[in-house]
Simulated assay, not measured.
Amino acid sequence: TRSFDAIELWGDKKWFHWVCKGAFNIDLLNNLRFCPTIHAEDTPFGIILFAKAKQIKLLNKQLYIYRIRANSNCEYNMTQDSPLLAYPPSLADIAFEFRNRINYRPYYYSYSSMYASLGLLDFMQTLQDNALKDRIRLFIINFVEAAFEDEKICHKNPRHTRELLKPLKPYMQKVRFSRKMGYYAPWLYRVLKKAQTIKNKIKSDC
């Protein structure tokens, strides 16, 4: 094994998930904890943990087995009629608004990406290492793009996240203009989208 720093280990990865694939010095935790109410809570946790580490070593051994559990919050194999199964109290507002797993899950993912972006932004602002700050900035840009990924966020927003996104405006380089419009001017987005639908229908009928 050899030692790595976080930037070398991350390489050009768009995401970095880490929680139970190794051991770490507990002193690195300090006040670092999971946020139990977001999707993929190991992503911001792992990024910050590795950024704080002075030395990282890899073992080229399979020590971890991933078990796929049916009906988990991470399941992607869903259809429009997938039932709304049991959900934690922290998701009650989202589940009530969307009523359906295939509808509420993308919103939950977008909300979680926004929340992770804000956490990484707070952490980045404490760093002195410019190279590390630049690399964290790239993670934030990817998270912000994911926060706008779900079109449903343009129509329903039970957690009223528009105000929370204000600090993230400098990191929206990858967010499509139409998604920004849908989020910040949903009424205009709906009008334009309806007009486009009518236009397409007229074309198909001609």
Rank of each mutant, 00 (worst) to 15 (best):
M78S: 02
K133H: 06
S90F: 09
S3C: 09
G11D: 12
T79Y: 03
G119K: 12
P36W: 04
L164V: 08
C20V: 15
Y64W: 12
K133E: 07
T37F: 11
Q80M: 06
I153Q: 01
Q62P: 03
T37L: 08
T43A: 08
Y64R: 01
K61A: 04
W18R: 06
K193E: 04
Q128N: 15
S117V: 01
F96Q: 14
E163A: 14
K203A: 07
R99M: 09
S178D: 11
D134M: 10
I7V: 04
N130W: 09
M181G: 00
N200F: 02
F148I: 05
E75W: 05
H17L: 14
R101N: 03
I26P: 10
R99T: 13
S82L: 01
R101E: 02
I68T: 09
K21S: 13
H155M: 11
F98D: 00
F34P: 06
N100L: 08
N142S: 11
H160Y: 14
P106N: 07
L127K: 09
E149L: 14
G22E: 10
S82H: 01
F45K: 00
D12H: 03
Y64V: 00
A70M: 05
A86F: 15
R67W: 10
A147H: 00
Y87S: 01
T126E: 13
L32S: 07
G182L: 01
N25E: 13
F24W: 13
Y171L: 00
K52T: 01
Y109N: 10
L84S: 07
P83M: 06
F96E: 13
T161C: 13
N77P: 00
A185F: 14
A86L: 05
S3N: 09
W15P: 03
I102E: 06
S204L: 08
L91V: 04
K13C: 12
W10C: 02
M181N: 06
E8D: 13
